[in-house]
Deep mutational scan, measured.
Amino acid sequence: NQASVVANQLIPIQTALTLVMMRSEVVTPVGIPAEDIPRLVSMQVNRAVPLGTTLMPDMVKGYA
């Protein structure tokens, strides 16, 4: 099973992502693949992302 990127904390809207905000976890449905974590650093979320939420491509500006 492929690991996805999951929020390690509440990430407020417009926040630039850092490594400490994300973790990898095998979840359903599958979100952004964990191997993309380095690419996500400094990208902004376009909505508030609660703790434990799987990051989906449409939540990160410039990802999809």
Rank of each mutant, 00 (worst) to 15 (best):
G62T: 05
S24N: 06
M22A: 01
V49P: 03
M56H: 08
S24R: 13
T54K: 03
M59F: 10
Q14F: 12
A34W: 07
Q14E: 15
S4F: 03
A64C: 07
A16H: 13
M43A: 07
R47Y: 10
D36S: 11
T53C: 08
A34Q: 06
P57Y: 09
N46S: 13
L40G: 03
V30D: 07
V45Q: 00
N46C: 05
L19Y: 12
V49Q: 03
V6F: 02
D36N: 11
M22S: 01
N8G: 08
L55D: 01
N8L: 05
M43D: 02
T54Y: 02
D36W: 09
M22V: 08
Q2L: 13
M56Q: 14
L17M: 12
V49H: 03
N46M: 12
P57S: 08
N1P: 15
N46R: 10
D36L: 12
Y63H: 04
L40W: 03
L10G: 11
L19W: 11
V41S: 03
M59E: 00
T28K: 12
T28L: 11
D36A: 10
Q9H: 09
I37Y: 02
I11S: 00
D36Q: 14
T15V: 09
M22C: 04
V5C: 06
I37P: 01
I32C: 04
K61C: 07
I13Q: 15
L51S: 12
M21T: 02
V26W: 09
G62I: 04
V45L: 10
N46W: 09
P38Y: 11
T53G: 11
P29G: 04
L55A: 01
V45W: 00
V60E: 00
K61F: 12
V20W: 13
A34V: 08
I11Y: 02
V41W: 00
L17C: 04
D58A: 12
A64H: 11
K61L: 15
A34G: 08
N1R: 09
V27G: 02
L55E: 00
S42W: 07
T53E: 09
N8M: 07
P12V: 05
M22F: 08
V30L: 14
Q44A: 09
R23N: 06
Y63D: 03
I11N: 01
L55W: 02
T54M: 04
N1K: 12
L51T: 12
V45T: 12
S42R: 13
M43L: 15
I11H: 01
Q9I: 13
G62D: 14
S24V: 10
N46L: 13
R39A: 08
M59N: 06
G31P: 02
K61R: 15
A3L: 13
S4G: 04
G62F: 08
Q9R: 13
L17V: 03
L55C: 03
I11R: 02
M22Q: 00
P50L: 07
V27M: 06
T28C: 08
Q44D: 04
Q44M: 14
R47V: 15
L55K: 01
P38V: 09
S4T: 02
L40D: 02
P50G: 09
Q14D: 15
I37L: 11
P50T: 09
M56D: 04
N1C: 08
M56L: 11
L55Q: 01
V26T: 09
V26P: 07
T53Q: 10
Q2F: 13
T54L: 04
N46F: 09
Q14A: 15
Q14Y: 14
I13R: 12
A48D: 15
D58G: 10
P50Q: 11
T54S: 04
L10W: 13
L40A: 00
I37H: 00
S42D: 14
Q2P: 15
L55F: 08
A64T: 15
L10K: 09
V6S: 00
P57N: 05
E35I: 14
L19G: 05
T18H: 05
E25A: 15
I13K: 15
S42L: 09
T18G: 03
L10F: 15
V45D: 04
Q9C: 08
N8R: 10
Q2V: 13
G62W: 08
V41M: 06
M22E: 02
P33Y: 07
I11C: 03
V49D: 03
P29W: 04
M56N: 05
T15A: 11
V45M: 09
L17Y: 02
L51F: 15
T28F: 15
M56T: 12
T53N: 14
E25T: 07
D36R: 08
I32M: 02
M22K: 00
L51E: 13
I13M: 12
V6I: 12
N1D: 12
A64P: 10
P57M: 06
Q44H: 11
S42P: 01
V30K: 11
L55M: 13
M22L: 12
M56W: 05
N1I: 13
P12E: 09
T53H: 09
R39Q: 10
A34D: 06
L10Y: 15
I13L: 12
A7E: 02
M43K: 11
S42K: 09
E35A: 15
M22R: 00
V41D: 02
I32D: 00
G62E: 10
V20N: 12
M56E: 06
P12S: 08
S4C: 05
M43P: 00
S24E: 09
V45Y: 00
S24L: 07
V60P: 00
P33L: 08
R47Q: 12
T15F: 05
P50S: 13
I13A: 15
R47N: 07
T28N: 14
S4V: 02
